[in-house]
Amino acid sequence: MIARGLPAKACTSYWPGIVAAALTTTVTVMPGFTVGALGPAIEQDLRVSRTAVGLMISAFYAATALGSPIAKRAAARLPAPVVLAVAAVAACAALLVVSQADDLATMTAALVAGGLSNGLVQPVAGRLIAARVPVRRRSLAAGTIGAALGAATIVPGLLVALVLPVHGWRTAMVAAGLIALVPVLLTPLTRLPPGTSPERVGRGATARGTGGVLVLWALAAALSATGNNAVATYFVQLGTHSGLPATVTGNLLSLSALLAVAVRLAAGALTDRAPHRNPAVIIAMMLTGALGLMMIAIGTPVTFVLGAALAFSAGWGWTGLLLATTLRLVAHQAENAGHTVQIGVYTGATIAPYAFAALSDAFGYAGSALLAATAALAAAASMTAGTLLSRRLGER
């Protein structure tokens, strides 16, 4: 069966393009996670506070969120391969500049530039899925894109475990920058079929009345991302605070990221069988993530490992499903789906690093983790409200 509104050729061999977009998504968000993972070494070398580094990381995500409206327009007009290649090269440049910087101002400027280019990716991904992927495979395709956000912590985790102890944080940052160039060679695979317009793809709901649903879902994404991004950014610090060695925590970060990738792919494949149930699955994931954050707050090695597994796999595993769900709602404007997910996720990610650093200084890691769990519970409530509103609109 072929997605309605798509030519047969557009529905064949779409996976190489989806994988290329996913790899690009991985490297463009990597600067924020890499600086977070290497944060303790940066703080010690430059003699700066944890809050200052957290504010710098927040600037990266803020640039993505604030630049998202412009990125959405660019995604609708420019060739997808060009946009993705520019984003990957910008991520490489940002990481290399950070690796040579001796002050936070230079680092922050580089991260802001990287954050702006990172905002280009999700709208392009939404357009690519709507234009090339059949409806019956869109949850899996969106899950593949969402898995990239989890995969973005794999490299920083390995750098902490393997490169940092021997060569230092600057070399580790250079290695991350070079890795960011890998997807550039694959971006030609993301070409859209000639004559395919994202506005004509799919059925979708009418635009009338969907704005409120998108706002509630974006708010849910922001609240959930606040807690889970804090865990991803400060994973090494939380692990060592719970009694685990830094090298073990770095390896655990990479393993947790692999678990997150597996869960997102599995969730996408399973929900393709009943895509109308995606919102319920997302709500369940957000609630499970809240439980994981509560376990992390206990502060023992065992509860940290279990809590991190839940927070990464479920609490941070809904992004692809949310992209697929919003595509069903506004398939006639596919870039809006990526924009909704992106602005929500990165608004939460903007708040998380600085807020968690400041709160952990005031209330400790346990208190901060509990506040993050509260945000995850509020996210589930907002997602529920948006889902109920979308059902009422569908009944009209």
Rank of each mutant, 00 (worst) to 15 (best):
V182P: 06
A142W: 08
V182L: 14
P165Q: 08
P156R: 08
P123R: 12
G150W: 00
V201L: 00
L192K: 03
T210A: 08
T240V: 13
V166G: 01
G168F: 01
T196S: 13
A205K: 03
H167Y: 13
L140W: 11
L178C: 12
N228W: 04
V231N: 13
V215A: 14
V135A: 13
V174W: 07
V184Y: 02
A222V: 06
G204Q: 02
G211Y: 02
I129K: 01
A207S: 11
L140S: 11
F235Y: 15
L158A: 08
P183H: 09
V182W: 07
G146T: 14
V184G: 04
W217V: 10
A147C: 00
A142N: 10
P123S: 13
G209A: 12
R127H: 02
V174G: 05
A232E: 00
V133I: 11
L178W: 15
A172W: 02
R132M: 03
S139P: 11
A141F: 12
W169D: 10
H167N: 08
V182S: 07
S139R: 11
L128E: 00
S117T: 15
A141S: 14
G239T: 03
P193A: 06
G126Y: 02
P134Y: 11
A225W: 04
N118G: 07
A130I: 00
W169Q: 10
P198V: 02
P134A: 10
A131T: 13
Y234I: 04
G202R: 06
A175E: 00
A222H: 02
I154P: 00
R127Q: 07
V155R: 08
L189A: 13
L186I: 04
A172H: 03
G195E: 10
L120H: 00
I145T: 08
A232N: 11
G168V: 05
V121E: 03
L128I: 01
P165D: 06
L186E: 05
A180T: 01
P123D: 14
T226L: 15
L178I: 11
V135Y: 09
T171W: 10
V201C: 01
V213E: 05
L116P: 03
M173S: 14
I179A: 03
L192H: 07
L162E: 13
